[in-house]
């Protein structure tokens, strides 16, 4: 089934730097729909889940409390972002303190240990529908394949999303190379792209199916 892609436009306050628009540097190996088995698709999903449930991703995919998390091997105990930070319903901190106050928009490498990380796209929480932190694997899977909750994306749009992120050196790219002593999400951007293409070609199977 093809879904109409609804482009979600989010207006950002602040300096919108066009960071390194250009080549995404990834190899896109399209697969025909249905050309991947259920088993292989689930295997691909499992690897995708390893990535999206990793602290580098899940820390900002939090629920309607709108609080980013500080978790991962760098933290003695996982907990909410310090300094009373709350990203608000806007998910960008517009109600209180903008995430971008401390998290710059820059594609330059992260080199300072313990500094506020930056990426090539304005820092913010993921939309509240994309809650992954502390969620069971199947719940995440169902959300990711549901156009009502994934920003209206079909398989092609998911692939596009990753490519666009690579062009900007934005959040997904950052997760695989966070620098500054933070543990990276497992695998590489290329592998994540390949797994996504594979999962889509398998019909986006979920473990609970």
């Amino acid at each position: 089934m093809r879904w109409i892609v609804i482009a979600a436009a989010v207006v950002f306050a602040g300096n919108a730097l066009a960071a390194g628009e250009g080549d995404h540097g990834l190899e896109v190996n399209h697969l025909e729909a249905g050309s991947v088995s259920q088993a292989d698709g689930l295997a691909a999903w499992s690897r995708i889940h390893d990535v999206v449930s990793h602290p580098r991703c899940a820390n900002c995919h939090t629920d309607e409390a709108n609080i980013p998390m500080w978790s991962g091997p760098e933290y003695e105990t996982p907990g909410p972002h310090g300094m009373n930070i709350n990203a608000g319903e806007s998910r960008i901190g517009a109600e209180f303190l903008l995430c971008q106050t401390c998290h710059a928009t820059s594609a330059l490498p992260n080199t300072l240990p313990h500094a506020a990380p930056h990426a090539g796209s304005p820092w913010m929480l993921a939309p509240v529908e994309f809650v992954w932190f502390g969620q069971p694997e199947n719940a995440i899977c169902e959300q990711m394949r549901d156009p009502e909750r994934n920003g209206g994306r079909d398989g092609d749009a998911m692939v596009e999303h990753i490519l666009h992120d690579a062009e900007l050196k934005a959040f997904i790219t950052w997760a695989f190379d966070p620098g500054a002593g933070r543990e990276a999400a497992p695998g590489t951007m290329q592998e994540h792209l390949d797994d996504t293409i594979q999962w889509v070609a398998a019909g986006m199977p979920c473990p609970g199916d």
């Binding site: 306050a13 602040g14 300096n15 903008l98 971008q100 106050t101 401390c102 998290h103 710059a104 820059s106 500094a115 506020a116 930056h118």
Partner: peptide
């Protein structure tokens, strides 16, 4: 916009 200039 207020920003931390040590991060820009």
């Amino acid at each position: 916009m207020a920003v931390r200039s040590c991060q820009i």
